[in-house]
Lab assay of single mutants.
Amino acid sequence: TETYETTDETEARKIAEELKRRGLTFRIERHGTTIRIESD
Score class of each variant (00 low, 15 high):
Thr1Gln: 10
Thr1Asp: 06
Thr1Lys: 14
Glu2Gly: 08
Glu2Tyr: 15
Glu2Arg: 13
Glu2Ser: 08
Thr3Lys: 09
Thr3Phe: 14
Thr3Gly: 04
Thr3Tyr: 14
Tyr4Phe: 08
Glu5Ala: 05
Glu5Ser: 07
Glu5Lys: 04
Glu5Gln: 07
Thr6Ser: 03
Thr6Asn: 01
Thr6Gln: 00
Thr6Pro: 02
Thr6Met: 05
Thr6Glu: 02
Thr7Tyr: 06
Thr7Val: 07
Asp8Asn: 08
Asp8Gly: 02
Asp8Val: 04
Asp8Leu: 05
Glu9Pro: 14
Thr10Arg: 10
Thr10Met: 12
Glu11Thr: 09
Glu11Gly: 02
Glu11Asp: 05
Glu11His: 07
Ala12Glu: 01
Ala12Gln: 01
Ala12Arg: 01
Ala12Met: 06
Ala12Asp: 01
Ala12Leu: 04
Arg13Met: 13
Arg13Asn: 09
Arg13Asp: 07
Arg13His: 09
Lys14His: 09
Lys14Glu: 09
Ile15Tyr: 10
Ala16Ile: 15
Glu17Asp: 10
Glu17Pro: 00
Glu17Asn: 10
Glu17His: 08
Glu18Ser: 12
Glu18Ala: 11
Glu18Gln: 09
Leu19Lys: 01
Leu19Thr: 00
Leu19Ser: 00
Leu19Ile: 03
Lys20Ala: 11
Lys20Glu: 08
Lys20Asp: 05
Lys20Met: 12
Lys20Trp: 11
Arg21Asp: 04
Arg21His: 06
Arg21Ala: 10
Arg21Thr: 06
Arg21Ser: 08
Arg22Met: 05
Arg22His: 03
Gly23Leu: 02
Gly23Lys: 05
Gly23Tyr: 02
Leu24Ser: 03
Leu24Arg: 10
Leu24Ala: 05
Leu24His: 07
Leu24Ile: 11
Thr25Ser: 13
Thr25Cys: 15
Thr25Arg: 14
Thr25Gln: 10
Phe26Ile: 09
Phe26His: 04
Phe26Gln: 02
Phe26Arg: 02
Phe26Lys: 03
Phe26Glu: 03
Phe26Pro: 13
Arg27Asn: 06
Arg27Phe: 10
Arg27His: 10
Ile28Pro: 01
Ile28Val: 10
Ile28Phe: 06
Ile28Arg: 02
Ile28Glu: 04
Ile28Tyr: 05
Glu29Ala: 08
Glu29Gln: 10
Glu29His: 12
Glu29Ser: 15
Arg30Pro: 02
Arg30Ala: 05
Arg30Trp: 13
Arg30Leu: 11
Arg30Ile: 14
His31Trp: 11
His31Cys: 12
His31Gln: 09
His31Met: 10
His31Lys: 09
His31Pro: 00
His31Ser: 08
Gly32Leu: 04
Gly32Ile: 02
Thr33Leu: 13
Thr33Tyr: 08
Thr33His: 08
Thr33Ile: 11
Thr33Lys: 12
Thr34Asn: 06
Thr34Met: 13
Thr34Val: 13
Thr34Ser: 06
Thr34Lys: 08
Thr34Ala: 05
Thr34Leu: 14
Thr34His: 06
Ile35Tyr: 10
Ile35Gln: 00
Arg36Asn: 02
Arg36Gln: 03
Ile37Ser: 00
Glu38Gly: 03
Glu38Ser: 14
Glu38Thr: 15
Glu38Asp: 05
Ser39His: 08
Ser39Met: 13
Ser39Trp: 15
Ser39Tyr: 14
Ser39Lys: 06
Asp40Met: 14
Asp40Phe: 15
